[in-house]
Deep mutational scan, measured.
Amino acid sequence: YDEVAAQGEVVRKLKAEKSPKAKINEAVECLLSLKAQYKEKTGKEYIPGQPP
């Protein structure tokens, strides 16, 4: 859960800094992968601010 939240912060920071699109896309792919792992382990969708 904490990893997903941390990666979400990374994506937000990159977007706020107007980073190159390729770098943002890479961070988003990582975030989506973490969300998929979270769902696989818990059986639930990741919802920000609602730990399992």
Rank of each mutant, 00 (worst) to 15 (best):
P52G: 03
L31N: 08
V28E: 12
A16K: 10
P20W: 01
K18H: 13
K41L: 09
D2C: 13
E17N: 11
A22H: 04
K21P: 15
S33M: 11
S19I: 15
T42Y: 15
Y1G: 00
P51T: 06
K21D: 11
K41C: 09
Y46G: 03
T42V: 07
G49C: 10
L31F: 15
E40M: 08
L31G: 07
V10T: 12
Y38H: 06
L34F: 03
L31Q: 09
A6Y: 05
Y46Q: 05
R12F: 02
E3R: 03
A22D: 11
P48K: 07
A6D: 02
K41D: 14
D2A: 03
A27M: 02
I47A: 13
S33I: 08
Y1I: 14
A22K: 13
Y46C: 04
E9G: 07
L34H: 06
Q7H: 01
A6P: 14
E45W: 00
P20N: 14
P48F: 04
E9M: 06
L14E: 15
E9H: 08
R12Y: 01
P20R: 06
K44A: 00
Q37M: 09
A5V: 08
E29D: 12
Y38Q: 05
S33V: 10
A16D: 14
E17V: 07
E40P: 00
V10I: 15
V11G: 05
I24V: 12
R12S: 06
R12C: 03
V10E: 09
E17R: 09
E45D: 13
K39T: 05
P20M: 05
A5G: 01
E3T: 15
K18R: 09
G49I: 09
A22R: 10
E40N: 12
T42P: 01
Q50S: 12
G8W: 15
P20D: 15
V11M: 00
K44D: 03
G8T: 14
E9Y: 02
Q37E: 13
E3P: 07
P20I: 06
V4R: 00
E40D: 07
P48L: 08
V10S: 08
P48W: 04
G43K: 11
L31M: 09
V4T: 00
G8A: 15
P20T: 13
K23R: 01
L32C: 14
V4C: 13
K21F: 07
Y46D: 05
E26P: 03
C30K: 15
V4H: 00
R12H: 03
V4A: 00
D2Q: 15
E3F: 04
C30N: 07
K15C: 03
E9V: 14
Q50P: 08
G8Q: 15
L31E: 07
Q50I: 09
A16N: 11
A16R: 11
K41W: 06
Q37C: 06
R12L: 10
K35C: 04
G43S: 04
A5D: 07
L31S: 05
I47Q: 10
C30R: 14
P48D: 15
A16F: 09
T42S: 11
S33A: 13
